[in-house]
């Protein structure tokens, strides 16, 4: 088989695996009547969207979710940056130990972290606030962003920085002209991952922000009970995710 034909097969498989479920979601969202054994809905309509968006709750939840996800991602990237730099240059058992501690929130079951967080966030008056949600999401998002960022600071990047410094470039210019361009692709990927993790948080959002429902909390009750409404909400859920993906893929391409 030629390389091209293999590529074509991989492409076709990818379409079936990823695009087909998406297509079902779109059809389901517009299905007014869809009964077995019909392959397609007997009647199309906008009931799903009317219910999903009629009350404005979903719109509010989307705005809240976006604010929280963007803030969390930005904070996580800023915090993870120096940590990733330091970790990239360290070696040995200490590095492993530090990584383990940082990844702990990913290893512990989310349910367990959620219950603990709830009580403390209520004590601190952070429950049901945007700040509280950002901090709760940060516990999960930060390890992901950090783990992705570490390889950005390869010895080559560090060498380039050193060279720029020896040529008399100041710290700001060094960051803008050397570090960012050479790490941009990884930063974009890390930010994308951070955004998506925050955007789809269910457990921690429920634990500390049940009273300020993020989009996943609005969506979940409809799953199973009312597939049409759930599908309509899922489409809304997908839009920012796809936008973020597009943005990140542009970011990675430009940097390379």
């Amino acid at each position: 088989m030629t390389e091209r034909r293999i590529g074509r097969w991989v492409g076709a498989t990818a379409i079936v695996l990823f695009a087909a479920p998406l297509a079902v979601l779109v059809v389901q969202a517009f299905a007014e009547v869809w009964r077995y054994p019909a392959l397609l809905p007997q009647q199309l309509g906008l009931r799903g969207f009317r219910v999903a968006f009629g009350s404005g709750d979903a719109g509010r939840a989307t705005v809240d979710s976006l604010e929280v996800a963007v803030t969390t991602t930005a904070l996580a990237t800023v915090i993870a940056w120096p940590a990733a730099r330091a970790l990239a240059r360290s070696h040995g058992p200490r590095r492993t130990a530090v990584l383990m501690v940082l990844a702990l929130p990913l290893l512990v079951p989310p349910f367990a972290t959620g219950t603990g967080l709830a009580e403390w966030f209520i004590r601190l008056g952070l429950a049901d606030t945007r700040l509280g949600l950002v901090l709760a999401h940060l516990t999960v998002v930060l390890p992901y962003v950090l783990l992705v960022l570490i390889p950005a600071f390869s010895p080559r990047v560090i060498e380039l920085e050193e060279m720029a410094r020896s040529l008399g470039t100041g710290p700001v210019r060094r960051l803008l002209l050397v570090t960012l361009p050479s790490t941009g692709a990884v930063v974009a990927a890390a930010a994308l991952l951070g955004f998506l993790v925050s955007w789809s948080q269910y457990g921690s959002s429920l634990a500390v922000g049940g009273g300020l429902p993020m989009l996943p909390l609005t969506l979940l009750p409809f799953v199973g009970a009312d597939p049409t409404v759930a599908a309509a909400l899922s489409l809304l859920f997908l839009v920012p995710a796809i936008l973020a993906l597009a943005l990140a893929s542009r970011g990675t391409r430009e940097a390379l």
Partner: peptide, 23 residues
């Protein structure tokens, strides 16, 4: 203000957490 939950126990859990937090 409707606060959606997928299971009533989520609301009860919250009340219990508040009690534990001394609220």
């Amino acid at each position: 203000d409707r606060v959606p939950v997928s299971d009533t126990v989520e609301a009860v859990d919250r009340v219990v957490a508040e009690r534990k937090a001394g609220k």
